[in-house]
Design a binder for these strands. Structure first.
Length: 595
RNA sequence: GGUCCCGUAGUUCAAUGGAUAGAAUAGGAGUUUCCUAAACUCUAGAUGCAAGUUCGAUUCUUGCCGGGACCA
């Protein structure tokens, strides 16, 4: 149990015993004390001043005295300033914490809690390669899964591949028209890029055909419908649905190319899935649920035969769930898939990592599932993340402003290489070690950049400025880790075994600040899981690294003032390295032993 | 037309209703006979506007201005 919890519970207990009032300890606000004041943690008194009918000063004094008296092994001193009770934690508390933590390699992780969670992420289309937005999705999904695992959850990662529909047919038509039967191998390209190029080709042709028809006197609206290449794509979709063999064969072949390309990218960026669903196999799911909903009176039928649900009482609109021609819509198959997954995994929570443009869709999805009384309903959680934008605005594939995922990864790794060579610190590495190091740094920078921001918020990626290895970045933290490991290696070479540090020590301000920060790690991980927010971990690790950098530039570890100090600092360094490693690990970022 | 989200230093991001709004970067000034200068230290710089609720508002409410998303 960390010290903040102990403060809250001790305060609640003291309030109860002095004033006879039951105060839920969760309601007690405890903050880190601002650096300009004396103390480590602060209880904010305003919240219960009214209830207890005491002046803040009198209340603070009574609480402070009682807390010190009853918890001499935690608190050393206190002061009150304007309704803030600043508590000083005893150095011995931190020394005990360091001592008991130094050998816990899994510090921060919770025991298994038998609760199952599903995380669905990535969800690509098979008509084009992954881009920057997918990277944010993949890193978030992977990271949230790791954070939940660290908190004891049994996590299953799934992916739904959007492998059917008109957009897939577009690249198929263009390939038939322009590829002369060539394959990615012939073009020496990754399959996803190869297919993506034909998707672009389709749109180019489509545009010029529209212009031709308009020049021939057709209205724009009509031209968009009548363009021959679009008619061909629609015909192909029909043929696909009726199962025309040569269309299915082409579809399979092109999808295989794309999957091979995705697989390469996924391996590179560290995405993996326990189960992959394909929309071609799930798009008919949910049809029977529409009939069920009609029978239950949750849905209603209009005169034309279409089926709807009325969500106006929930502040939304009426929503179509089955077209008049009997075909289903997106929301219907999503309901069906939710049920399918529920049957297979029986998870208590099902997290969908999907962009915030689909907020409305998921609101509707959850509501309908609830109204149908489906077991999956209450566990549906939309982890909605903001779009990644460029300084010029939204990425638009039509305007060629999409940042390709593979290109970006390569660029980051190349910059890592260039930077490492300039510094020339690892000239003794083998070529394999160097390649690995460039990957660690380049990918670390990219992942950290995309994960350090609150997922809910949209973010800006500036190709010129975003690629930085200084300051609030992955490499900054990786460098701190490498420095610590270097220090620890040298200390071990001197055959210094880690003996428990003697109790009679006083901590210097930076030593204490590090101890306080390290002790917070498990609660930061918990918080990140509750909030579904990896940025909490990223910010925490960065602050930890920053404090450590100040600490070890100011205080020598190897040449500490005394043997006891040296042992203490080695403990702090060891735990800091461990926490950096574990924290970066849940972000999907590796740390190098040297750089 | 309706629903929802977002406006914080030049820029990119923080801040469960709590103390003098934190970082990073760009700018200015420094630090290397001493564990890796991808580091450290100092400096300057911000809550779109206007009301309201509150002991206290970046945070909650309303209106306006500006940007974005979605629904038909």
């Amino acid at each position: 149990m960390n010290v903040v919890l102990q403060i809250k519970q001790a305060t609640a207990k003291v309030i109860s015993s002095i004033y006879g009032i039951t105060m839920p300890w969760q309601d007690i606000l405890v903050n880190a004390t601002k650096p300009e004041f004396e103390g480590d943690y602060t209880v904010v008194l305003f919240a219960f001043v009214k209830q207890l009918k005491k002046s803040p000063d009198a209340l603070g004094k009574e609480l402070g005295d009682a807390l010190l008296l009853e918890n001499p092994d935690i608190f050393k001193h206190y002061n009150i300033i304007k309704g803030f009770l600043n508590l000083g934690i005893a150095d011995s508390y931190w020394l005990r914490f360091l001592d008991s933590t130094v050998n816990q390699t899994q510090f921060g992780n919770q025991n298994a809690n038998q609760q199952r969670v599903m995380v669905e992420y990535s969800s690509p289309n098979t008509n084009k390669p992954l881009h920057l937005g997918h990277l944010r999705n993949n890193f978030l999904g992977r990271s949230i899964a790791e954070i939940l695992k660290a908190n004891g959850y049994d996590v299953s990662k799934t992916c739904i591949v959007n492998d059917r529909g008109i957009h897939i047919c577009k690249s198929m038509v263009a390939w038939q028209l322009y590829a002369n039967g060539t394959s990615p191998k012939d073009a020496n390209m990754k399959g996803d890029h190869f297919v993506g190029d034909y998707y672009v080709k389709f749109n180019d042709t489509y545009k010029s055909q529209i212009n031709e028809l308009k020049n021939a006197g057709m209205t724009e609206e009509l031209a968009e419908k009548e363009a021959p290449i679009m008619l061909a794509a629609q015909q192909m979709l029909q043929d696909w649905e009726t199962g025309k063999p040569d269309v299915l064969e082409l579809w399979r072949k092109m999808n295989e190319w794309v999957y091979a390309g995705f697989e390469t990218t996924y391996q590179r960026i560290g995405s993996d899935f326990d189960k992959t669903y394909y929309e071609s196999q799930t798009y008919l799911l949910g049809k029977d649920l529409v009939d069920e909903g009609l029978a239950k009176g949750v849905f209603y039928q209009k005169e034309d035969g279409s089926v709807w649900i009325d969500l106006t009482n929930d502040g939304l609109d009426e929503k179509l769930v089955r077209r008049k021609d009997g075909t289903s819509v997106y929301i219907t198959q999503d309901i069906g898939l939710a049920e399918q997954k529920q049957k297979e995994f029986n998870a208590g929570q099902s997290i969908y990592v999907v962009g915030d443009e689909q907020n409305y869709h998921f609101k509707v999805l959850k509501l309908i599932c609830q109204k149908l009384g489906l077991p999956s309903a209450d566990g549906i959680y939309h982890l909605s993340y903001g779009m990644v934008e460029l300084p010029t605005g939204k990425m638009k594939s039509r305007e060629g402003t999409v940042v390709d995922a593979d290109d970006l990864v390569e660029e980051m790794v190349n910059i890592a290489k260039q930077k490492t060579e300039e510094l020339g610190k690892v000239k003794d590495f083998t070529p394999e070690e160097l390649t690995d190091l460039y990957d660690i740094i380049g990918l670390g920078a990219l992942k950290f950049f995309l994960l350090r921001v609150d997922p809910k918020k949209k973010m800006v990626f500036n190709p010129e400025e975003s690629i930085d290895f200084h300051g609030f970045t992955g490499p900054f933290i990786q460098y701190t880790y490498a420095r610590i490991k270097s220090i620890l290696r040298k200390a071990n070479q001197e055959n210094q075994t880690q003996t428990p540090n003697p109790k009679l020590q006083t901590l210097l301000p930076l030593e204490k600040e590090l101890s306080i920060h390290l002790e917070m790690f498990p609660s930061v991980l918990q918080d990140a899981a509750i909030e579904h927010d990896p940025s909490k971990v990223a910010i925490y690790i960065f602050n930890l690294a920053k404090i450590f950098n100040s600490f070890y530039t100011e205080h020598s570890i190897a040449n500490a003032e005394s043997e006891e100090k040296k042992m203490l600092r080695l403990q702090i360094a060891t735990i800091t390295a461990q926490v950096i490693k574990n924290g970066m690990s849940v972000l999907g970022i590796r740390v190098p032993e040297r750089m």
